[in-house]
Amino acid sequence: FRTVLRLFLEQDGYRVAEAENGIEAINVFEQLHPDIILLDISMPDMDGFECCHKLHSLAQDQHTPILMLTSVEDERSINRAFAAGATDYVTKPVLLPILRQRLKRLIEQSQLQQKLIAANQQLQLLVNLDELTQVANRRRFEEYLALEWQRQIRSQQPLSLILCDVDFFKSYNDTYG
């Protein structure tokens, strides 16, 4: 089945890396950081659940989808696969056109997720920095002060704060920016 699947995916333009077992799959993932992982439950050395859990923990920052593609279809195994971090679950025999659409959807969702994370990081910068000076603004000051206050409470250390007021700063800022 793996050979048929590889040929099908390569015909669709995918570059495919194969692994003989779960340990090899983890090594291949760490080297290649693929866009999607197809994983069976029945594998030598380590079952698909354990491999899925390890891959999911490694792929968390990248949001790499894990598709369990297996002949095991009992409810307990399905629940266990999703609990281990599987993104989707397809049972064999699978219709290849259905698999094609699932792969396309999972990769698109992963790419959208990554774009959303990048946009949120950019938004966080815009919310916390003054656009003109690139200096942290009042919102960031208040967040930082709250963090430092909590740390001071935990460590029982004093917290010092210096506030400065520059006279006639508005006219300086209006003139020089």
Rank of each mutant, 00 (worst) to 15 (best):
V16Q: 02
A17R: 00
E18V: 05
A19P: 03
E20P: 03
N21D: 15
N21R: 05
N21V: 06
G22P: 10
G22C: 10
I23D: 04
E24Q: 09
E24V: 14
E24S: 07
A25C: 07
I26R: 01
I26M: 03
I26G: 00
N27W: 10
N27R: 11
N27M: 07
V28I: 15
V28C: 04
F29S: 04
F29E: 01
F29H: 07
E30K: 05
E30S: 04
L32V: 13
L32I: 13
H33T: 05
H33R: 13
P34D: 01
P34G: 05
P34E: 02
P34L: 04
D35I: 05
D35R: 15
I36A: 10
I36G: 05
I37P: 06
I37F: 02
L39C: 08
L39W: 03
I41N: 10
I41A: 10
S42C: 07
S42F: 13
M43S: 08
M43I: 01
P44H: 09
P44Y: 11
D45K: 05
M46R: 07
M46Y: 00
M46W: 00
M46L: 12
D47Q: 08
D47G: 05
D47E: 09
G48D: 09
G48R: 15
G48K: 14
F49M: 10
E50W: 01
C51F: 01
C51S: 14
C52I: 06
K54E: 14
K54V: 14
K54L: 14
L55Y: 07
H56R: 05
S57Y: 03
L58K: 05
A59L: 02
A59M: 01
A59Q: 00
Q60Y: 11
Q60A: 13
D61S: 13
D61C: 03
D61V: 04
H63S: 14
H63F: 10
H63Y: 11
T64W: 12
P65T: 11
L67V: 15
L67T: 15
T70A: 08
T70M: 14
S71L: 05
S71N: 06
V72F: 15
V72I: 04
V72G: 12
E73R: 11
E73L: 00
E73S: 12
E73N: 12
D74W: 01
D74V: 02
E75V: 15
E75R: 15
R76L: 14
R76M: 13
R76C: 11
S77C: 11
S77A: 14
S77T: 00
A81V: 09
A81Q: 12
F82A: 09
F82V: 06
F82P: 04
F82S: 06
A83T: 07
A84T: 12
A86E: 13
A86H: 07
